[in-house]
Simulated assay, not measured.
Amino acid sequence: MSVLEVEGLAKAYGGVQALGGVSFTVGAGELLALIGPNGAGKSTCFNIVDGQIRPDRGTVRLAGREVTGLPPRRMARLGVGRTFQIAAVFDSLTVLENVQAALIAARRQTFALWRPAATIAREEAQHLLEQTGMADHAGRPASELAYGDVKRLELAMAIASEPLLLLMDEPTAGMAPAERLALIELVKRLTRSRGLAVLFTEHSMDVVFGHADRVVVLAGGQIVASGDVDAIRADPQVRALYLGTGRAAGGRA
């Protein structure tokens, strides 16, 4: 059974059709890249999946359960994690405290006021930092981290809730080439070891073609191609719409 099933998603803003009947699935242990030129409908699709936007029609199912239109907080409780194009961490906290905060929120332990927060989920947080290569930075304030390390910290926080589905919006944006590849390799390892389903958008084609299991290409709110990376790389319509000219008709991001 697929972890995520998207069927017939459609969304219009006034007279602009942002999505026009988009369908795809993502399985456990799979990285699916959602790509396309600016205005293709990627952000609209993402925001529908995690509950920020209600579709005009269509359904979203998570592990077989229909979740269409549920708010982001509810989606998070049901097993949807997310990272953002601009990483969101708490600069005033240490790296370890950031992950502890994510674990406390995921476990709804915020009511445990009689326990010092620094003692809650400390070992689990340390383990997540080890998995993401951030253990050596545990005591550093997040404000002192290099950008690539901030992205790793955000990833550790996102998987703290043990999600079924991880949504990653431009995960390597603003990173140097070597950092980009290192981060997506880390994501792939975690995807395999944890059985995560990962849906990500990305403009870096070396990241997409080097690490995605399958690719869905949007243009003008429609799927114009889908398949493995070799098929997408060779598809003449994809090359014309996105990889070649970088232009496509209509739509909204």
Rank of each mutant, 00 (worst) to 15 (best):
V217R: 04
V217F: 12
V217T: 12
V217M: 11
L218S: 09
L218Y: 07
L218A: 08
L218W: 04
L218N: 09
L218T: 08
L218C: 11
A219W: 01
A219L: 03
A219G: 13
A219E: 12
A219F: 02
G220D: 10
G220Q: 07
G220R: 00
G220Y: 09
G221N: 05
G221A: 04
G221D: 01
G221L: 02
Q222A: 14
Q222N: 10
I223Y: 02
I223G: 07
I223C: 13
V224P: 01
V224Q: 05
V224D: 06
V224G: 05
A225H: 07
A225R: 00
A225W: 07
A225Y: 04
A225D: 11
A225E: 10
S226W: 03
S226Q: 15
S226V: 05
S226E: 15
S226R: 15
S226D: 14
S226F: 03
S226P: 04
S226N: 08
S226C: 10
G227I: 03
G227E: 06
G227C: 03
G227K: 07
D228R: 00
D228P: 01
D228L: 05
D228G: 11
V229K: 08
V229R: 14
V229T: 14
V229G: 01
V229S: 03
D230E: 13
D230F: 02
D230Q: 12
A231Q: 13
A231D: 11
A231M: 05
A231E: 15
A231R: 14
A231G: 04
A231P: 06
A231S: 14
A231I: 02
I232K: 03
I232P: 03
I232G: 04
I232W: 05
R233V: 08
R233Q: 14
R233P: 02
R233I: 10
R233D: 10
R233H: 13
A234F: 03
A234M: 01
A234D: 13
A234G: 06
D235L: 11
D235R: 07
D235A: 10
D235T: 06
D235S: 13
D235H: 15
D235C: 06
D235V: 06
P236A: 15
P236E: 15
P236F: 10
Q237D: 14
Q237V: 14
Q237M: 14
V238P: 05
V238R: 02
V238I: 11
V238T: 12
V238K: 00
V238H: 05
V238N: 08
R239I: 15
R239N: 13
R239S: 09
R239Q: 15
R239G: 03
R239H: 09
A240V: 00
A240W: 00
A240T: 07
A240S: 12
L241R: 08
L241T: 14
L241Q: 10
Y242W: 11
Y242D: 12
Y242N: 10
Y242C: 11
Y242S: 11
Y242G: 09
Y242Q: 10
Y242H: 09
L243I: 14
L243F: 13
G244P: 03
G244W: 02
G244I: 06
G244Q: 03
G244E: 01
G244R: 02
G244N: 08
T245M: 10
T245W: 01
T245H: 12
T245P: 02
T245I: 01
T245L: 11
T245V: 04
G246R: 09
G246A: 08
G246N: 04
G246Y: 05
R247G: 05
R247Y: 07
R247K: 12
R247H: 13
R247C: 05
R247L: 15
A248G: 15
A248T: 01
A248K: 00
